[in-house]
Design a protein around this nucleic acid. Structure first.
Length: 634
RNA sequence: GGUCCCGUAGCUCAGUUGGAUAGAGCAACUGACUUCUAAUCAGUAGGUCGCAGGUUCGAAUCCUGCCGGGAUCACCA
């Protein structure tokens, strides 16, 4: 079939059956259902007729499993498949051949389809970008506390949020990136107090420290001083008395005091009392405390900004808990009126028995807000700001039940966006030695980690030496891309909901299933394209016989738009990561098997250059969805 | 104890709405750079898919029970 004829046929199909022919699977499915109906008089739902990729060992491109039809056909699976295959081949202009193995009908697609697909990919400047859905979605991620620097857990959060945001955009949504900065509360007061008592007026500028690390230093300082105070206290009569009165069963003094720490902070600690006093002053808008708070928060936020920049992420809007923690009151009052919430004096609560939670407090008996009331208020504020029907919260899975109850409450309140709320829950990041513990100093700092992976990229690059003539600056930019590519890919290739093990040594690996492996495929293509331009290759496009390695690439690229949709639906960047890797792997194989610039014929050469261009385009696009940059050489 | 999540090769992970002989990478071993960038490719070896039942033409996938690991059960955020 000629190209123009094929294109005409494609158009006809788009008009005659209302399916996007960019999905050849959907087309085959429709034809299959039609054929089954014609042969056996029963119309199957499309969900009952899966069309899957044919396994490598067999001839063909797509496979239909005919077992479901056997009952109505009243024939042996083999006969049924053969009969069906013949009819599908007759009906579909794309099916060139078929074969039957047991109950599996393998369909071969005419290679002119693949040629036209390649043409489409190269000509469509937006290939992969879906038409606008008209929906606005918010993605909330990062959302740090302002009392200490970011760590590995935040990195997973940030990379996930950024990538999901990109994927949702590619799926046709209008997306805004937001975060809620947890800038108030007892934690920041601890840092503030420690700085006031022990800081001697030093600043990030005077010490040359990054602001978040500087404030984090005082958070640690507070913990140390508190620990000292607590150990001293444990020797006092008051401690002895407390132990005798409060202990339950036979518990050693040591174990008792381990668990009693928070109570000590609240009931006896001098430092605790001071920190709490500071919090109360903050809430009363005491000018001195507020000034200190403003100053220290500014230091931290400036530090975070540097980390975000080094990760190449940014936000459309920052919400501050200090602004939003009092919100939600009106909605809650309305909820009381509507009998959605119950009131007991000042306390407000909601009965969540139906989702297995019992009573949940929304407003405390002293009339102050809770996490839940804040989130109700914040969600509503965001809806006012953006009119977004979709709100994605990228938050660790330890908060699963909080979001489950929050969403249930929003549903009961009849929020117009209630159905669009989604908690993108992800698992904790463990180290090979186990869980990260700040007390044991095993927390992996975000900035250190970024620096390390870039350093590793620098070491690796020195062994390769393809960068003659590049300036130091260009080289550094490259190490940056390679290092970050390794780190980001390492984290994003894992399914979010899964708890993952972060092996520092493996994360800077650059061979095999890694970011740099994929970047390398792109670099190889760029190198070829530079040479092709230099040689003045013209694209003739009269290629006749697709080799398997060539067809594999087009088959993969054909699936890209639907992979984006699926990743968007599941909020799962790992599906995009898997695509990038598969495509890079297939390209590396093709590159090895087939000469490009020294191809057998001029037609083969121009076809392969065209094919390489398409691969480069989708590698660039898909890696961009992961927030990973590509480069011209490495 | 209640609720939820997880258990696949030595390690880290894939595995579509149930489909063919369960796949990658790392680590180990073997081979390929006078040839478009070897950060590559080809190969060898490595599995009782936690265990036991059940449903089905067909189960890593669905159901039940058990074992093991984790999260969470606040008027904290």
């Amino acid at each position: 079939m000629s190209l123009s004829l094929l294109n005409a046929t494609l158009k006809n199909y788009k008009m005659s059956i209302n399916i996007g022919v960019d999905s050849i699977q959907e087309h085959l499915q429709a034809v299959c259902i039609e054929s089954v109906a014609q042969l056996y008089g029963e119309t199957f739902e499309s969900s009952k007729v899966p069309v899957s990729d044919t396994r490598k060992e067999y001839e063909g491109d797509y496979t239909v499993v005919v077992f479901p039809f056997v009952k109505v056909a009243k024939k042996k699976p083999e006969d049924c498949a053969a009969e069906l295959g013949a009819l599908i081949k007759e009906k579909s202009p794309f099916v060139s051949d078929f074969n039957v193995v047991k109950g599996f009908l393998n369909l071969s697609i005419d290679q002119s389809f693949w040629f036209s697909k390649l043409k489409e990919i190269n000509e469509d400047s937006d290939y992969g970008q879906h038409a606008s859905t008209g929906e606005t979605m918010l993605v909330e991620f990062a959302s740090p506390n302002t009392n200490k620097p970011l760590h590995l857990g935040h990195i997973r959060n940030i990379l996930l949020g950024w990538s999901v945001s990109k994927i949702l955009k590619a799926a046709g949504n209008d997306v805004k990136n937001v975060q809620i900065v947890n800038d108030r509360g007892i934690a920041i007061c601890r840092s503030m107090l420690a700085w006031q008592k022990f800081g001697n007026g030093e600043t990030p500028e005077s010490t040359g420290m990054k602001g978040d690390h500087f404030v984090g230093k005082y958070y640690v300082k507070f913990a140390q001083e508190f620990k000292k105070e607590y150990s001293d206290w444990q020797l006092s009569d008051q401690a002895e008395k407390t132990y005798q009165e409060k202990k339950k069963g036979e518990i050693s003094k040591e174990d008792f005091f381990k668990e009693y720490k928070n109570n000590y902070f609240n009931d006896f600690s001098a430092l605790g009392a001071e920190a709490k006093e500071m919090l109360i002053k903050w809430e009363d808008s005491d000018p001195e405390v507020r000034a200190l708070w403003t100053k220290m928060n500014a230091w931290v936020l400036a530090g975070f900004e540097v980390t975000y920049e080094s990760l190449k992420v940014d936000f459309d809007k920052l919400y501050f808990e200090s602004d939003t923690y009092l919100l939600g009151k009106e909605i809650i009052e309305k909820g009381i009126e509507d009998k959605i919430f119950q009131q007991e004096d000042k306390r407000v609560l909601v009965d969540l028995e139906n989702i297995g939670f019992g009573n949940k407090t929304i407003i405390k008996s002293d009339g102050t807000s809770t996490y839940t009331s804040q989130d109700i208020g914040t969600a509503n504020l965001r809806y006012k700001d953006y009119g977004a029907k979709g709100m994605i919260y990228v938050v660790g899975d330890e908060q699963n039940s909080h979001f489950k109850s929050l969403f249930e409450i929003m549903r009961r309140l009849g929020a117009p966006y209630a159905d669009g709320l989604h908690h993108l829950s992800y698992g904790m990041v463990d180290l090979p030695t186990g869980r990260m513990k700040s007390r044991e100093g095993t927390v992996v700092d975000a900035d250190d980690l970024i620096k390390e992976t870039i350093g590793e990229a620098r070491n690796n690059a020195k062994e390769h030496g393809e960068l003659e003539g590049a300036t130091e600056e260009e080289k550094e930019a490259l190490y940056n891309k390679v290092g970050l590519g390794a780190l980001k890919y390492f984290i994003l290739k894992v399914n979010p909901q899964r708890r993952m093990v972060f092996n520092p040594a493996a994360s800077v690996d650059m061979q095999g299933d890694t970011g740099p492996y994929i970047q390398n495929a792109y670099v190889r293509i760029q190198s070829i394209l530079r040479k092709a331009v230099a040689e003045g290759v013209s694209l003739t496009f009269n290629y006749e016989n697709l080799l398997p390695a060539e067809k594999d690439l087009i088959v993969l690229m054909n699936a890209y738009p639907s992979i984006i949709l699926k990743a968007a639906k599941n909020y799962d960047p790992s599906e995009v990561a898997a695509f990038s890797y598969d495509l890079a792997k297939s390209y590396h194989k093709f590159y090895h098997d087939c000469s490009i610039l020294r191809a057998e014929t001029e037609d083969a050469k121009s076809f392969r250059i065209d094919l390489s261009k398409a691969v480069a385009k989708l590698l660039l696009h898909s890696m961009d969805l992961l927030g990973i940059e590509m480069m011209e050489r490495m």
